[in-house]
């Protein structure tokens, strides 16, 4: 997993609430046995018109939004299916952080395993940030805060374990494998 300490980027805004993983990556793109290359289908049905041309109104198609790696999203982002294809598609699209006032459980877990940082802030703070998407924001993983150029710092929750994994780019599997003695002891009693 590619981790990071700090991220500086302007943001893309998708203000709608309850954006589910079927919107992030529709089911018909799940017939793959790979992880890579899903970015082109991210938000497919909003992003592409029926004739295959880009929908000019969709934020990810707008020239000024290209290369931005922070998404400001409406409440309850990532609800629905457990498909890890959702964070795979979003990171393939270039995103590294999702900011919302609520992020669904499984999506949140899946994101952290893929170097995509879920940042939960108060609804009013998310709304305020959405007003100024062209501000360059700084995500500081070590300090667990997001800073805007007006000098404001927004603290976000991130448990120590996920923080370490992200800072050091290590994944959870290595940690679990090292617990082999405890797991073997537990299995003795099954």
């Amino acid at each position: 997993m590619a981790g990071f300490r700090e991220l500086k980027s302007k943001s893309v805004v998708l203000g709608q609430t309850n954006i589910d993983t079927d919107q992030i990556i529709p089911a018909r793109f799940l017939s793959t046995t790979e992880r890579a290359g899903l970015g082109k289908n991210a938000f497919n049905d909003w992003r592409w018109q029926a004739d295959g041309t880009p929908n000019p109104d969709f934020p990810f198609n707008q020239p000024h939004n290209q290369g931005r790696s922070i998404l400001l999203a409406g409440r309850n982002f990532g609800c629905g299916s457990s498909r890890e294809h959702a964070p795979w598609a979003l990171t393939d699209l270039g995103l590294r952080a999702i900011v919302s006032s609520e992020i669904a459980d499984i999506f949140r877990n899946n994101s952290l395993k893929n170097g995509l940082l879920p940042i939960v802030l108060k609804e009013e703070d998310v709304q305020a940030l959405m007003q100024r998407p062209d501000d360059e924001l700084t995500v500081d993983v070590a300090a667990r805060e997001l800073r805007s150029p007006d000098g404001r710092a927004y603290a976000f929750p991130l448990d120590g374990f996920s923080q370490t994994c992200l800072l050091e780019g290590v994944d959870e599997l290595g940690y679990l494998l090292a617990r082999h003695p405890e797991i073997a002891a537990y299995e003795q009693h099954l």
Partner: peptide, 20 residues
């Protein structure tokens, strides 16, 4: 409960999951 594909790998390899 449902898990993501990375976690499917965790369970395959260790029969365990990290959970809060």
């Amino acid at each position: 409960f449902g898990i993501g594909t990375s976690e499917v790998g965790h369970v395959l390899a260790t029969q365990c999951l990290l959970q809060r």
